[in-house]
Amino acid sequence: MTRPNTKGLSLSFLKLAPLAVISVLAACAQKVPPPPPPPVVVIPPQPQPPMGAPLNMRIPEVADDGTRKTVNTSVSTAQAVWNLRSAYNVAALNCVEPEYAPVLAGYKDFLKIHDKSLDKADADLKKNFNGAFGKSGTRERETYQTQVYNFFSVPPVKSTFCNAAMALATEMASVPAGQLEGYAPQGLAKIEAPFMAFFDAYDQYRADLAAWQAKYGGIVVVAPDQARNSTTTARPGPPAVQPQ
Score class of each variant (00 low, 15 high):
Met1Gln: 09
Met1Pro: 07
Met1Cys: 08
Pro4Arg: 13
Lys7Cys: 07
Ser10Arg: 15
Ser12Trp: 14
Leu14Thr: 04
Ile22Asp: 09
Ile22Glu: 06
Ser23Asp: 04
Ala27Glu: 02
Ala27Cys: 10
Cys28Tyr: 13
Ala29Glu: 09
Ala29Thr: 09
Ala29Arg: 09
Gln30Gly: 15
Gln30Lys: 12
Lys31Leu: 15
Pro33Phe: 08
Pro37Glu: 03
Val41Ile: 14
Val41Pro: 00
Pro44Gly: 12
Gly52Cys: 09
Pro54Cys: 03
Leu55Phe: 09
Leu55Gln: 11
Asn56His: 14
Asn56Leu: 08
Met57Arg: 06
Pro60Asn: 00
Ala63Phe: 04
Asp64Gly: 15
Asp64Pro: 01
Thr67Trp: 02
Lys69Trp: 10
Lys69Leu: 11
Asn72Cys: 11
Thr73Asp: 04
Ser74Cys: 09
Ser76Arg: 02
Ala78Gly: 01
Gln79Ala: 13
Leu84Ala: 07
Arg85Asp: 12
Val90Pro: 04
Ala92Tyr: 06
Glu97Val: 01
Pro102Tyr: 04
Pro102Thr: 03
Leu104Tyr: 10
Leu104Val: 09
Gly106Tyr: 01
Tyr107Pro: 02
Lys108Gln: 15
Lys108His: 11
Lys108Tyr: 05
Asp109Thr: 15
Asp109Met: 11
Phe110His: 03
Lys112Ile: 14
Lys112Ala: 15
Lys112Cys: 00
Lys112Val: 15
Asp115Pro: 00
Asp115Gln: 15
Lys116Pro: 00
Leu118Gln: 00
Lys120Ala: 15
Ala121Ser: 08
Ala123Asp: 06
Asp124His: 07
Lys126Phe: 10
Lys127Pro: 05
Lys127Ile: 07
Phe129Asn: 04
Asn130Asp: 13
Asn130Met: 02
Phe133Thr: 07
Gly134Lys: 08
Thr138Ile: 10
Glu140Pro: 00
Glu142Phe: 04
Tyr144Gly: 09
Tyr144Asn: 09
Gln145Tyr: 10
Thr146Trp: 10
Tyr149Gly: 04
Phe151Lys: 02
Phe152Val: 00
Ser153Asn: 10
Val157Asp: 05
Val157Thr: 01
Phe161Ile: 07
Cys162His: 03
Asn163Ile: 03
Ala165Met: 03
Met166Ile: 07
Met166Val: 06
Ala167Gln: 14
Thr170Asn: 13
Met172Gly: 08
Val175Arg: 09
Gly178Trp: 07
Glu181His: 07
Glu181Tyr: 13
Gly182Trp: 06
Tyr183Gln: 05
Glu192Leu: 02
Met196Gln: 12
Ala197Thr: 11
Phe198Asn: 01
Phe199Pro: 09
Asp200Ala: 13
Gln204Asp: 11
Tyr205Ile: 06
Tyr205Asp: 08
Asp208Ser: 08
Ala214Val: 00
Gly218Lys: 14
Gly218Leu: 08
Val222Ser: 14
Arg228Cys: 06
Arg228Gln: 15
Asn229Ala: 12
Thr233Asn: 10
Pro236Asn: 15
Pro238Leu: 02
Val241Ser: 03
Gln242Ala: 13
Gln242Met: 12
Gln244Trp: 01
